[in-house]
Amino acid sequence: MNFPQTIKERRTIRRFNTTPVAPELVVSLMNNAASLYEAEGTPRWRCLFAGTPESRHRLVESMMAKMKESRFVKLMPTKMIDFFIKRVTDIPAHLIFIAESASDRRHSDENYAAVCSVMQNFQLLGWEHGLGALWDTDPMFQSESFLAEIGLQEGERFAGILHIGYFDKAPRARRRTPAEQKWTAIGEGGKADGLQSERVRISAQSILEVLNDAVWAPNDGLREPWRFIYVTGSEAAAKLSDSSGNASSAFLLIVAKQDADPHKQEEDYAAVCCLIQNVQLLVKSRPWYVRRSIPNWIYDRDQCKPFGILSEERIVALLELGENDRSPHSEPSPPPLLNITHL
Rank of each mutant, 00 (worst) to 15 (best):
N2T: 11
N2Q: 13
P4G: 03
I7G: 06
R11G: 08
I13V: 08
R14I: 03
P20A: 11
M30V: 04
N31K: 14
A39Y: 12
E40D: 08
G41M: 02
C47H: 04
H57D: 12
K66D: 13
R71H: 09
V73F: 03
K74E: 13
L75K: 13
K79C: 01
K79H: 09
F84M: 12
K86R: 15
I91Q: 05
H94Q: 10
I96M: 10
I98V: 15
S101W: 00
S101I: 01
S103C: 00
M119Q: 04
M119H: 01
N121C: 06
F122W: 02
F141W: 08
Q142M: 09
E144K: 15
E144C: 01
L147S: 04
Q153I: 01
E156P: 05
R157P: 03
R157G: 00
L162G: 13
G165L: 09
D168N: 14
K169D: 09
A170G: 00
A179R: 01
T184W: 00
I186A: 05
G187P: 07
G190I: 10
K191S: 12
A192Q: 10
G194D: 15
S197P: 07
V200I: 04
R201Y: 06
R201G: 01
S203G: 11
A204G: 14
L208E: 06
V210A: 02
N212P: 08
D213V: 10
P218A: 10
P218Q: 13
N219L: 04
N219G: 02
E224G: 00
E224C: 03
P225Q: 11
Y230I: 09
A236N: 13
K239W: 07
K239F: 14
G245V: 04
N246V: 14
S248L: 11
F251E: 10
F251M: 05
A256R: 12
A256P: 04
Y269K: 13
C273L: 11
V279P: 01
Q280L: 13
V283L: 05
V290S: 05
V290D: 00
R291L: 15
W297A: 05
Y299S: 07
L310T: 07
E312H: 15
L319S: 12
E323D: 13
R326M: 13
S327H: 15
H329Q: 12
P335N: 03
P336I: 09
N339M: 08
H342D: 06
